[in-house]
Design a binder for these strands. Structure first.
Length: 948
RNA sequence: GGGCGCGUAGCUCAGUGGUAGAGCACUAUGUUGACAUCGUAGGGGUCGCUGGUUCGAUACCAGCCGCGCCCA
């Protein structure tokens, strides 16, 4: 049965993948040599709500390439798959689904019923991305599938893993060590999801807005003189406020108010002070006095604080400690009250707000703001300010507003009780590990990003007001005392002991940040807190492959958690991975970040449908140069699909010519120079591919494979093998068949990590094998042992000769069908041997008929100069003497220019004295070659001139 | 404002202290029994600019210009 002309990826891929799975080819330790070293990669867990985007495709292509490579080398490999429970995202998806179905809402059905719904949803829809990873060819050990919510209460059968235990153990442990604490402070509050989020989940978005200036009247009838500047503009006298940039003020104006500027008028309801710089000449005299807050009627102090910048705005800022991070700090320094005026949905709350009502005399208009959304309240307050005459002015301004990365609504700094991790304490060891060689970043410069964050780390808010997640293991007694234990029973026991009597407890309703559990990924996926054999074997993992966008979110947290909890026999902290390879961001072909809103998203699954998974993988690997973003275009993918076709057809050629692998074939035993040459080339390829993969230089490895398979094996070896395969010499034919089959096998083996499908298919098609390609032995070929310099030189010269003849033929418009004799004019021994020994190859590829040695070139012959001699093609009648002369002179000019450059170099005493000996020698040899070629060209040119 | 990175062929990008590369695109050409998802040949670059180090710089250093990303 002969092969099809192309590889049918769509049909073959699922079959091949199923075969691998049937054979258990992906299992941890599959194909491991006895006593093998381990090589483990933990997948960056995709969200359970996720679907495969091009970044995942890149990330997993690289992981799979490394895993397949090491597996073939006989390492004890583990590629640990799993998923992240994605608290907010998942809860959002399920709530939306319930709403769409007209089902009772989350709050109506209650916590237990809702989480049951989430589990149901996960069972139905949660594995989309896993199936997409399979299509990509990912060889994860699916039998070890992990999930960051496994083992949580209510988890259905099959979801009964260890993660919940791990999370609780870590929480209780960190709490016991004083590294987790409860605190009332401002957090980033997402009013849409009504939960706290961490700093990292906040996006800064630039928005057009206004800076409103309000006049706050001084209390007790106080006045002061505010400096102003009188100017004449267009013939009119104007007065404006003096600023520190001006010269001395030209006048003073008596005022009974101070002007503050704000981008958020609605927060004025919660103002508890006005800050000015201590040395601001405008306001220094007012420090210690008070203003009366408009609408609210509260007396609030004017305080000195460095937060007020005299050069910005009016130099005076209103202080709302309960609604702004900076103001919170000012308030702490100045002892100001905290008055929260918003609900969890960012609606104004005044009526039942004791903190607000205490010590104020609000206008009825203020109280009418009750229940309004923050933006509605803003409008009303501005209108009231205008109506009541305390609006000083409005300046348009763009400013940066923090938004929730999931909800896309503006985040409200909000005062609540939350749980925090003392990240600063955990960061110490995590920083050390990245600097003492325990964990190495590739490319190395990413360690700076990591450092910068670790060094400026803030307390990590880990509690979330959600239901989908690990509920915080803390129980409260009625008096507020709390007990942090892994189980309710332990908490109860602790409480009873503490109070000396049975005490009713209520559990903290909040859950933990998803990244808190993701931080345990390197341990939790291996069974921790149980001391499993896998944990002993595969922790720490070999390399983490990830995008730079989650260095903070995830890498940093795994480092902190792993180092804190994992200890070696001596009790020293053990890092979660030896290497961190940070790969590029995939952009569209114009360099834009792909996003749904821009509509420039390239769907990897569409690419796979169109070009095959191998082409998509090879494209991504080829473009994965370290430290650079990838701009992906379809044409590039099409090119690598063509590459797969090329490989396929090379195999088809082998099949047609009965090239089958010979068991026990020893590549060193080949005798024909052509065969010895391809063996050497193959050995060199193996060294380059191994070196590339070992250093995470995926593009180098892929590039070398491409150049070898297409440019060396197909273009030259296959072409040059044809005369041998179709010739009469049976011994040469047999040797060439065996060598070709061997060399092709090596290509399949080395391409397999990048193009697993087409290579596996060909592997099976070419011969019956004891093992599938996925478990084939990776070669240990050494170029030093196998490359034959004589064969390399001979084939190198052969190729140069053929190319030179073809070039002349094309330039002279010799029809491809015309066969010409080759006249050898001058030849050193090697060239002579080549002309004699490889006549069949030369004839076929250069379309030559008969090689003869002549004393002088006949009239009308075109001369070709080569290393070691010159040959000629008789083209009398075809060639125009003048054109030929011009061609040769042009070539001569170039050679002479090169020669002159080198000669100048060799004339430079500094070069001779300081350049390394071998460089000098190289240049001398090159000059000699160029001079010899120049002589041949010049001779040929003068002969051509005779024709004219 | 702080940090990181990038300017090399028309496009997308490798690369190196010692002869400038690839893929795509382009031009010409081809029914040579693996492959037109192909073959053959060809054109195309003061390696962003200016200085410095060096016998020698596209590469190392400094400054400048242009662009991108991250953090405030």
């Amino acid at each position: 049965m002969s092969m099809d002309k192309t590889f049918d990826a769509a049909a073959a891929e699922p079959e091949i993948y199923a075969e691998w799975e049937r054979a258990g080819a992906f299992a941890a330790g599959a194909n491991a040599r006895p006593g093998a070293e381990t090589f483990a990669i933990l997948i960056p867990p995709p969200n359970v709500t996720g679907s495969l985007h091009i970044g995942h495709a890149l990330n997993n292509t690289l992981q799979d390439a490394l895993i397949r490579w090491k597996r073939m080398q006989g390492f004890d490999t583990l590629w640990q798959p799993g998923q992240d429970h994605a608290g907010i995202a998942t809860q959002m998806v399920v709530e939306r689904k319930l709403a769409a179905e007209g089902a009772p809402s989350r709050r109506e059905m209650g916590r237990e019923a809702f989480t049951a719904k989430v589990w149901e949803w996960k069972a139905e829809s949660g594995s989309t991305i896993l199936n997409q990873l399979r299509r990509l060819g990912a060889s994860c050990d699916w039998s070890r599938m992990a999930f960051t919510m496994s083992g949580a209460p209510g988890a259905p059968a099959g979801e009964d893993g260890n993660f919940h235990d791990a999370v609780l153990k870590v929480f209780v442990g960190l709490h016991r060590d004083g590294l987790i604490y409860r605190d009332k402070r401002l957090v980033n509050w997402d009013p849409h999801f009504e939960t706290a989020i961490s700093d990292l989940e906040v996006e800064q978005v630039e928005e057009k807005g206004n800076l409103w200036r309000f006049r706050y009247t001084l209390a007790d009838g106080e006045t002061y003189d505010h400096p102003v500047v009188r100017e004449e503009i267009d013939g009119e006298q104007t007065t404006r406020n003096w600023t520190p940039d001006d010269d001395d003020p030209s006048a003073w104006e008596e005022r009974n108010y101070i002007v503050v500027a704000t981008t958020r008028p609605e927060t004025m309801l919660g103002d508890t002070g006005v800050a000015v710089a201590a040395d601001d000449p405008r306001y220094a005299g007012l420090i210690g006095k008070s203003v009366v807050l408009p609408l609210v009627g509260r007396r609030i102090p004017i305080v000195a604080d460095q937060h007020a910048d005299p050069t910005k705005g009016t130099g005076a800022v209103k202080i709302t400690p309960a609604h702004d991070f900076n103001d919170f700090e000012v308030g702490k320094r100045a002892g100001l009250k905290l008055i929260n005026v918003m609900t969890s949905r960012a609606e104004i709350t005044l009526e039942r707000n004791d903190a607000f009502l205490d010590g104020c005399a609000p206008d009825p208009e203020a109280m009418a703001l009750e229940g309004l959304d923050r933006y509605e309240a803003r409008k009303r307050i501005v209108a009231l300010a205008e109506g009541q005459g305390w609006l000083d002015g409005i300046d348009a301004e763009t400013h940066v507003v923090p938004h929730g990365d999931r909800s896309k609504v503006a985040v409200e700094p909000w005062l609540t009780d939350q749980w925090f991790v003392d990240a600063k304490a955990l960061a110490k060891e995590a920083l050390a590990a990245a600097h003492d060689g325990r964990t190495t970043f590739h490319p190395a410069n990413w360690v700076k990003t990591y450092d910068h964050w670790m060094e400026n780390i803030e307390p990590w808010c880990i509690s979330r007001q959600l239901w989908w997640g690990h509920q915080i293991p803390v129980w409260y007694a009625p008096d507020g005392t709390f007990f942090c234990e892994a189980t309710e029973a332990e908490a109860q026991a602790a409480a009873d002991a503490h109070f000396g009597a049975p005490t009713a407890l209520t559990r903290d309703p909040d859950v933990l940040d998803t990244w808190f559990s993701s931080g345990l990924w390197p341990m939790g996926t291996l069974g921790w807190p149980d001391q499993t054999p896998e944990l002993a074997k595969y922790y720490p993992s070999s390399v983490l492959i990830t995008g730079f966008d989650i260095i903070f979110f995830w890498v940093a947290r795994m480092m902190m958690m792993g180092l804190h909890f994992m200890k070696d026999e001596a009790g020293a902290p053990v890092q979660p991975f030896h290497d961190v390879y940070v790969h590029a961001l995939v952009r569209d072909e114009k360099g834009k970040k792909m996003s749904k809103s821009l509509g420039n998203v390239i769907d990897p699954l569409e690419l796979i449908d169109e070009f095959g998974a191998d082409a998509v993988r090879f494209t991504l690997a080829s473009m994965a140069a370290m430290g650079r973003d990838i701009k992906l275009s379809r044409s590039r993918v099409a090119g690598y699909r063509n590459f797969a076709t090329k490989l396929w057809n090379a195999a088809r050629f082998g099949e047609m010519n009965e090239c089958v692998p010979v068991p026990g074939f020893d590549p060193a035993s080949a005798t024909a120079p052509l065969n010895r040459w391809i063996v050497g080339e193959t050995a060199r390829l193996r060294e380059v591919v191994d070196a590339g993969l070992a250093e995470y230089r995926f593009n180098d490895a892929a590039g070398a494979l491409y150049a070898h398979v297409w440019g060396v094996f197909c273009d030259w070896y296959v072409e040059l093998s044809k005369p041998l395969l179709m010739g009469e010499d049976e011994a040469a034919k047999a040797e060439t068949r065996a060598t070709l089959a061997w060399a092709l096998d090596q290509c399949l083996v080395m391409l397999h990590p990048f193009m697993p499908y087409v290579t596996e298919k060909l592997w099976g098609q070419i011969a019956d094998r004891p093992k599938m390609l996925i478990h084939a032995d990776w070669p240990a070929l050494s170029a030093e042992a196998l490359a034959d310099p004589a064969a390399d030189r001979r084939i190198g010269r052969l190729i140069a000769l053929i190319e030179a003849v073809r070039s002349v033929r094309a330039e002279m418009n010799v029809p491809p069908s015309a066969r010409l004799p080759l006249l050898v004019l001058e030849a050193d021994d090697a060239l002579r041997a080549l002309a004699d020994g490889e006549a069949a190859l030369i004839s076929r590829l250069a379309r030559i008929e008969g090689i003869e040695t002549v004393e002088t070139a006949p009239k009308g012959a075109v001369t070709i100069t080569l290393e070691g001699g010159a040959v000629a093609l008789p083209l009398a009648g075809i060639v125009d003497g003048a054109a030929e002369k011009a061609r040769l002179e042009k070539a001569l000019k170039k050679v002479e220019k090169d020669a002159d450059g080198i000669a100048r170099k060799l004339d430079n005493p500094g070069f001779l004295a300081k350049a390394p000996e071998d460089v000098v020698e190289e240049n001398r040899e090159r000059l000699e070659e160029l001079r010899a070629e120049a002589a041949r060209l010049s001779l040929a040119a003068s002969r051509a001139a005779e024709l004219v």
